[in-house]
Each structure stands twice: as C-alpha cells, then as structure tokens.
C-alpha cells in the first residue's frame, strides 16, 4: 500500500467510528459541543501519532512477551503529557472533558493501531496510519458533536445557526441524545453504502 493510501484508509474505508465502532466511550461522552469534539479528536490524534512513532522505532527492540505492557506505558506517557498540557494551557476545555482525557489511554483505537500497525511497519508508514486514523476519528467526533450541539442548543462552535424560532431539543446534549444521534448517523451511512453497492451491481 502506498503512503497516501495508508493515510486515506482511516478517513473512510476503515473509519474508526463509523466503520469499526472503536473508541466509543469518548465519542459518545464528549460530543456535547463541536468544540469539545474537536479538542478530543486533536488530543487523541496527538497520542496516536506520538505513540505510533515511538512504537515503530522500538518495534525490533521490544520482546514479544512484554509487548502489551510496553505499549501501555508509552501510550499512558503521552496521554499524561496531553492531560497536563491541556490543564495548563486550555483549562476550560480540560475541565469539560474531565476524566475522558486520561481515559484516552484505554481507547481501543490507540492500542489497536499500535498492535496491528506500528509494531509491524516502518516509522514513516506508521505516521501516515496514525494521521489517517486520527483525522478520521476527529472528523467523526466533530460531525456528531455539531449535530448534537445544533439540535440541542441551536448553535455550532458557539455560533447561533438556528434562530429563536427553533425549539431546541435539549435531549440531544443529554446522554440519550448521544446514543440516538450516533445510531441514526450510522444507519444513514449504512444506507448510503447499500445504495452505492446496489448501483455498482446494477451497472455490472
């Protein structure tokens, strides 16, 4: 696979949220506002890229039997760096994401990519993989968060989009709204895929 294809892979074909259903806890928990979604996406991308760089560099040094604990320590280190950096320089966002920043450490996406990709590939390829997955994860979070913020408060990124006339659906920013909006988005995307496949088969 070429470098570009590795990058593009995470954007749609193996999209972590919509195709693989990975890392669902932060996806549902922090997507109350588009800003939170974006911050979470960027934080996860940083951890993903840095850990894949380190793991791919160390891939021939780490013995197979201590692979998982080594990965966990590396990931947890970068997570703590993000945690403290955000608390210092973006305290408001750090507070609204609260425990979901340290919980990046158990995001199955990160351990999964390190285990499946970075431990078997060169650093350059791993960076492309991490960037693709990170960007994919981030746009997924932002889309979901924007939908919830728009319907729940009439705003996106804090800017009013829907005017006074719109009766805001408060439930969208509450826990049930997270499940339902992600479920509906998933169903719509599935339907798009089904239609596309039907069209391709029709052409044949």
């Amino acid at each position: 696979m070429s470098l570009l294809n590795i990058f593009k892979n995470g954007l749609w074909n193996e999209h972590p949220i919509f195709r693989l259903l990975l890392g669902m806890c932060p996806v549902l928990a922090v997507t109350t506002t588009a800003e939170n979604g974006l911050a979470m996406g960027l934080a996860t991308t940083f951890v993903l890229v840095s850990s894949e760089i380190v793991i791919s560099l160390l891939r021939n040094v780490i013995p197979a039997r201590v692979r998982i604990p080594s990965f966990i320590v590396v990931i947890a280190t970068f997570v703590t760096i993000v945690d403290y950096t955000m608390m210092a320089f973006a305290p408001a966002i750090a507070e609204s994401l609260s425990i979901f920043i340290p919980l990046i450490v158990v995001n199955c996406l990160i351990l999964g990519r390190n285990e499946a990709f970075a431990s078997r590939n060169t650093t350059l390829r791993s960076i492309m993989d991490a960037l693709g997955m990170g960007v994919g994860f981030t746009w997924g979070l932002v889309i979901l968060a924007a939908v919830r913020e728009l319907l729940g408060t009439g705003e996106v990124f804090g800017f009013t989009i829907l005017g006074e006339w719109f009766p805001t659906w408060n439930v969208m920013v509450l826990p049930p709204g997270a499940f339902i909006s992600l479920g509906v988005i998933l169903a719509l995307l599935n339907q798009l895929i089904i239609w596309r496949e039907q069209r391709i088969q029709g052409v044949k």
């Binding site: 259903l21 439930v171 509450l174 826990p175 049930p176 709204g177 997270a178 499940f179 339902i180 992600l182 479920g183 509906v184 998933l186 169903a187 719509l188 599935n190 339907q191 089904i194």
Partner: peptide, 23 residues
C-alpha cells in the same frame, strides 16, 4: 429490520431509549 439498521445502529438507538428511561 431494514438492513441499514442492523448491528450497531439499532443497538445505539435502543441504548438511547434505555438511557432516557434511566434518567
């Protein structure tokens, strides 16, 4: 069920209804 809803989608929507009940 419509094919698009199978798997993750319907599970999430049901979870949403359950979360509402738990509220």
């Amino acid at each position: 069920m419509p094919q698009a809803l199978r798997g993750g989608a319907i599970t999430l929507i049901m979870a949403g209804l359950m979360a509402m009940a738990f509220m």
